[in-house]
């Protein structure tokens, strides 16, 4: 077994016979920032609810901490932050700390400082802005110093400054505390700035899991050659110092870089007896790549 902190095995959730999460196999390693991306209604929040223990799976299993300390080792911010409007920020934090049996005034003040609410701790949370509420929600999730943090669309409704602050906080938690973080969003561009592993989900199914490097490679512009003789083409490319290429399918080669040398590469291969069916530059933006994934549907394990 690999060193996964979290694994789900054919995780399924049905409401009224309809599967909103359908046989999802997720894998998150310790220390990763896992970005779960999908359109609205894809099942992201439901997956997170099941992992956090708010909803019971209809089928499948979740392998996460099994020891008795698991309540303290997980923090979650799912949908709206759960804060009582008539109480101030400090009291909301204190309530959760008391419930967990970890109340310490200084720890709470440190957390409020970490999320930038130390000056607003005595203000009633019903008077907080949306960004402040989101930050307090993250603060609540951090009580007890969890090892695993679940953040469900934490940047929803935030202004650009708020988005930057949340992003920096997530990066800080990962770097300084070695926290494993699972974060969801429907904005791949923003998620790509923080996450190092991505899970793309649509209609309740996990379409793809891929690393940051793989995602970049998928989106990077490259030369695509379609030919019936990839072996000969590969050896010719190597002889001519084109090292950065990959045979992706039986009849397809991708060459990274050298985008201005398409005519030269074409001529070189043809003159050495390689039949070229197609040669062109491909690549896409993150959004286009994401849209192509959810548009295609199906399961593709990378």
């Amino acid at each position: 077994m690999k060193d996964f902190l979290l694994e789900t095995n054919v995780l399924t959730k049905k409401y009224g016979g309809r599967a909103v999460v359908d046989q999802v196999n997720l894998h998150i390693k310790k220390g990763e920032i896992y970005g779960l991306i999908g359109p609205n209604g894809a099942g992201k929040t439901t997956i997170m609810k099941m992992i956090a223990g708010f909803a019971t799976p209809t089928e499948g299993e979740i392998k996460l901490f099994t020891d008795k300390d698991r309540e303290r080792r997980i923090g979650a911010l799912i949908e709206a932050p759960g804060i009582i409007g008539n109480l101030n920020g400090f009291d909301n934090m204190k309530l959760k700390a008391l419930a967990m049996g970890v109340y310490d005034k200084q720890s709470i003040l440190d957390l409020l400082n970490l999320v930038g609410l130390e000056n607003d701790r005595k203000k009633k949370t019903k008077n907080y802005s949306l960004g402040m509420k989101q930050r307090l929600g993250i603060g609540l999730a951090l009580i007890g110093h969890p090892d695993f943090l679940i953040l469900d669309e934490p940047i929803n409704g935030l202004d650009p400054q708020g988005i930057t602050e949340v992003r920096e906080l997530v990066m800080k938690l990962s770097k300084e505390r070695g926290m494993t973080i699972m974060i969801s969003s429907h904005i791949l561009e923003e998620l790509s700035k923080v996450a190092n592993v991505f899970g793309i989900i649509n209609h309740g199914k996990l379409i793809k899991e891929l690393t940051e490097e793989k995602l970049k490679a998928e989106c990077e512009e490259k030369i695509e050659i379609v030919t019936g003789n990839t072996d000969l083409a590969s050896s010719i490319l190597e002889e001519n110092n084109y090292k950065d290429f990959e045979v992706v399918e039986a009849n397809k080669i991708h060459i990274f870089g050298n985008l201005s040398e398409v005519p030269a590469i074409n001529r070189m291969l043809v003159m050495r007896g390689v039949d070229i069916n197609e040669i062109h530059i491909i690549g896409s933006s993150l959004e286009n790549y994401y849209l192509s994934c959810i548009g295609n549907g199906g399961n593709q394990n990378v």
């Binding site: 223990g53 901490f65 997980i74 759960g82 009582i84 309530l95």
Partner: peptide, 19 residues
């Protein structure tokens, strides 16, 4: 209802062994 409506119940039941 206040606990549920504000969502505060989520803070109390994260992976709780015996909720």
């Amino acid at each position: 209802d206040t606990e549920r409506r504000y969502g505060f119940v989520k803070n109390l039941t994260v992976r709780k062994r015996e909720r």
